[in-house]
């Protein structure tokens, strides 16, 4: 058991983060697929999502999935964000984040000179993770405004009114799906990161890119 070799293996993703990650992954898949089913009932743009990529079978089913999984998504996100803030994980993993650092790491990454340290994110990764957290918050807030445009009318009007909020909700979804595609591509390129999100541990000193 390599995990018993303490000192050489370090925990980069504690249990709470791993559980939240996989619960979040599941709820995001359900929210996106059921959301596409709802979108198809009255498309905002000149396309439909393929039926095989939707969940629920019909509008009523898609909405039932969407509004059931909503609670899992939000409760899980609340636990994850509270942990991230109180434990210092967010500050440690996601900051500092400046345009200069992002540019430097982006140039290094594209010229294949970026160094990798297990458990440490470069500035491009930090930007992506901060970005998807913000997109998640936008998706939840715009979703609440769509669900309750009368009871939460202050929120709905702050976001520009019902019809604008529909588009915001769509864009937040598109951004999150874009993040997921990027995220999965990078995991496919560096499969050891998948193992780290399952076991929580990486080998200290290892370059996870190789």
């Amino acid at each position: 058991m390599p995990y018993e070799r303490q000192g050489r293996w370090i925990v980069i993703h504690p249990m709470v983060v791993r559980l939240a990650h996989w619960l979040n992954a599941t709820s995001i898949v359900v929210m996106v697929m059921s959301g596409w089913g709802i979108y198809n009932a009255s498309p905002l743009f000149a396309f439909h999502f393929p039926v095989w990529a939707t969940l629920g079978g019909w509008l009523g089913g898609s909405i039932a999935w969407h509004l059931a999984m909503l609670w899992v998504l939000v409760a899980n996100a609340a636990i994850y964000v509270a942990y991230g803030l109180l434990s210092g994980r967010f500050v440690r993993m996601l900051l500092p984040l400046t345009p200069g650092l992002v540019w430097r790491d982006l140039v290094d990454a594209l010229s294949l000179r970026l160094s990798h340290t297990p458990g440490t994110y470069n500035a491009v990764q930090r930007l992506a993770y901060v970005g998807v957290l913000i997109l998640g918050a936008v998706a939840v807030l715009s979703g609440l405004a769509l669900w309750k445009p009368v009871q939460l009318q202050t929120l709905a009007s702050l976001l520009g009114g019902y019809e604008v909020v529909r588009r915001i909700h769509f864009l937040a979804m598109a951004g999150i799906v874009g993040f997921v595609v990027l995220h999965l591509t990078l995991v496919a390129l560096v499969p050891r990161t998948l193992l780290a999100m399952l076991t929580g541990r990486v080998h200290a000193g290892a370059d996870v890119s190789r």
């Binding site: 039926v51 095989w52 990529a53 939707t54 969940l55 629920g56 079978g57």
Partner: peptide, 8 residues
């Protein structure tokens, strides 16, 4: 729902 439940 059978079909898309299978997909999920």
């Amino acid at each position: 729902n059978g079909l898309s439940l299978g997909a999920l």
